[in-house]
Simulated assay, not measured.
Amino acid sequence: MEFVKEFATFLHQKGIIKFGDFTLASGKHSSYYVDLRLVPSYPIEFRKMVKYLENQIVEDIGLDNFDSIVSVPTGGLVIASALAIETVKPLIYVRSKPKDYGTSKSVEGKIHNNMKVVMIDDVATTGGSVVNAVKDLKEVNISVKDAYVIVNRMEGAADALLGLGVKMHSILNILQITETLFEQNLIDENVLEKVKKQINK
């Protein structure tokens, strides 16, 4: 848990997690915003995060039990690329919409029938982009049993993925982050309560 505390503190110190009033990509309002696209700007923490993710995957499912790492642009793809280099695993990715030129396919990279892949993303809210990617992969006979995210916002993604037979794992969830920050007096009780309320909605 030492990494979790250290990483949560780092996210707060560098303004990667902000508290206030935000509108998300989905149009929903949120009492906080997590922008993990900033993490690669801090190479030491970025590498620690990728190593921690790699260790989790090794512990949970082992590196020999899947063929490739898959992700969705853009946030998750940077993390997945670094992970692919660390684990020496092939990388594929799923476009949010097929390109309208060239081969016009949605899944990019070397694929074959009955492949087993592990999905990587940065932040999970309702799981929309990952759910769509899993469906696209199923259409080309690629099976996903596990998805890993860095931060789980605890707003339905795990259930949405479970409905497709995918187990979601996360390095941190928003409750762990806010409770860690509260314990260190970095945020007040009011902020913590707002986050809890949002999760329970």
Rank of each mutant, 00 (worst) to 15 (best):
L24E: 00
F7L: 12
K14C: 10
Y32Q: 07
S41N: 08
F10Y: 11
I17K: 00
F19T: 00
V50S: 03
T23I: 13
T23A: 07
L53P: 02
F46P: 00
M49C: 14
D35W: 00
A25H: 07
D35I: 02
G20D: 11
S31D: 13
T23L: 06
G27N: 02
H12F: 15
T23P: 07
G15Q: 01
L38C: 07
E54P: 00
F19C: 01
L53M: 08
V39Q: 02
I44D: 10
K14Q: 15
K28H: 01
F7P: 06
P43T: 12
G20T: 09
V39H: 00
T9R: 12
D21N: 14
K5T: 13
G20V: 07
Y33T: 03
G20Q: 10
K14G: 11
I44K: 10
S31E: 15
F10C: 10
S31T: 13
S31F: 12
Q56S: 14
S31G: 15
I44G: 06
V4L: 13
L53T: 02
Y32P: 03
Y52F: 08
V4A: 14
I44Y: 07
V50H: 06
V34L: 14
P40A: 03
L11D: 14
T9L: 10
A25N: 11
F22I: 01
S31C: 15
I57C: 10
Q56T: 11
H29E: 14
F22M: 04
Y33R: 08
V4I: 13
L36F: 09
L53Q: 02
I57G: 06
V4K: 14
I57N: 06
K14A: 13
K48G: 03
Y52S: 05
F10R: 02
Y42L: 09
L24D: 02
H12R: 13
L38S: 03
K28D: 01
Y52H: 11
K18Y: 03
L38M: 12
E6Q: 15
K18T: 05
Y33Q: 01
Y42G: 03
I44H: 08
I44V: 14
V34H: 08
I57R: 04
N55R: 12
T9M: 09
S30T: 10
M49S: 10
K28E: 03
L24S: 03
F22L: 05
Y42Q: 07
P43K: 10
D35L: 04
S30E: 12
E45T: 10
M49L: 15
E45M: 14
L36P: 08
F19P: 01
Y42W: 12
G15F: 01
E6F: 08
K28M: 00
T9E: 14
T23Y: 05
F7D: 06
E6R: 12
Y42H: 14
N55Q: 12
L38W: 02
R47F: 01
M49R: 01
V50P: 01
Y32E: 09
K5D: 13
S41I: 00
Q13K: 15
K28R: 09
E45Y: 10
R47Q: 06
H12G: 13
E6P: 03
A25P: 07
E54I: 05
F46Q: 00
